[in-house]
Simulated assay, not measured.
Amino acid sequence: MVDTSRVSVARTDRMRRGPTLLGMAGSQFTLAALATTAVPGLVLTGTRTLGSVAGGDYESAVVRDADGRSSAIRRPRNQRAEARQSADLVAIRALSAGIRTRLPFAVPEYRGQAPIGSTRAILTSYVEGAHPALRDLTDRPELATSVGRAVAALHVLPTSFVTDAGLPSLTPFEVLRSAVSVMDRAVATKLVPDALQERWEGAARDQQLWQFTPTVVHGSLGLDSILVQGDDVTGVLGWGELRLGDPAKDLAWVLAGRREAFDTVLSAYTAGGGGRDRQLGQRARVHHELETAQWLLHGVQVKSTEVVDDAVAMMHRLAEAVHAPSAAPLQAVSPETMEIGEVEQLLSSTERRHS
């Protein structure tokens, strides 16, 4: 399998070059002072930096109060981070105490906010744990099992709390429309190998592939949002894409690693109550492969030759990999297919309804 795990990491790193909101990064003590503003009467006994001091989208710190509780406070360094933080705040406030009791991991809890310049600092509970590496899922099957169970627990949550909070709710057709849009825009650059274009178009025509029941999904699950201690998933961060959508999207990132790790995760996911549609694995692979197309489109958008060249190289390696005898198919075994014209007609009719 072609390793696309660095795509989202590299994309995030490059996107951090947005317009700066704060002229100069403050110290952890400035953030501590903001924490006491966010929660009047809060008495702090310690503070330390969280993450990189010099880089990153956020300036963050961990503060400890007199009751022994640890909190994380962060303020965005650019407008993109501010928008992401706002979306994350809406999502974690939608995750009520009752919903959280159904999850086998911790989710940050909102504790307060404080204005700073043209933005605001947000104080949440601090979730313990470290981000895993892809190889850990292969080397430690118990961890892969914990990941599968954690994702399943999320996907079986009642959907009503998402709709009640006014969060996005995507139908299977809207998920397909989004995937086809990425395919079409990538193909329009004339940089997508023919083998991949044919493979993706075949997946788009497969009606069975896109027949699924939307579930609660994290929406941007990956190594940078999962926290583990030992072989257990202890927390999940980055909830700004919380919605009803395709459960396969939350499993796609695992495919950047070895196949046996994905099989272990999927088996635990199914045992945990998830994976009720037989095409889940194939659809996860579609989402995974389209990461390269999205990386290409990002490079084109920001006019970065380096990113475009990297994306093209990755797509050519992917094209070689999918020709291997052991390559997993994207389509169902006996798919009911739509012609390309039918797909385009359906997409255009949906676009008219939403315009």
Rank of each mutant, 00 (worst) to 15 (best):
M1D: 08
V2W: 00
V2L: 10
V9T: 11
R17F: 10
T20I: 10
S27A: 14
L34N: 03
T36Q: 13
T36V: 04
A38N: 08
R48T: 12
Y58I: 02
E59C: 03
E59A: 05
R64L: 10
A66F: 07
R69C: 08
S71M: 15
R74W: 06
R77E: 05
R77P: 05
A81S: 13
E82I: 00
A83T: 06
S86V: 07
I92R: 08
A94H: 01
A94Y: 01
A94E: 10
P104I: 09
P104K: 11
V107A: 11
S118I: 07
E128L: 10
L134G: 07
T138L: 13
G148I: 03
A150F: 02
A152L: 07
A153F: 01
L154T: 04
L154W: 15
V156M: 08
P158K: 04
T159H: 02
T163R: 11
A165M: 04
G166K: 07
L167V: 03
A179S: 15
A179V: 11
V182W: 05
V182T: 15
V182N: 08
A186W: 01
A188E: 15
T189N: 11
L191F: 00
P193W: 00
A195Q: 12
W200N: 06
E201Q: 11
R205V: 00
Q208L: 14
Q208R: 14
G219L: 02
S225D: 08
V228P: 06
G230P: 07
D231C: 05
D232A: 15
G240D: 13
G245K: 00
A248N: 04
A256L: 04
F262W: 07
F262T: 03
T264Q: 14
A268L: 03
D277Q: 08
D277K: 02
D277Y: 02
R278C: 09
H288P: 00
E289D: 13
L290E: 13
T292Y: 09
T292A: 15
A293G: 07
K303R: 14
V308A: 07
D310E: 15
A311C: 03
A313L: 09
A313Y: 03
A319K: 11
V322C: 08
P329N: 10
L330N: 09
V333F: 03
S334I: 02
I340D: 08
G341K: 09
E344M: 12
H354P: 00
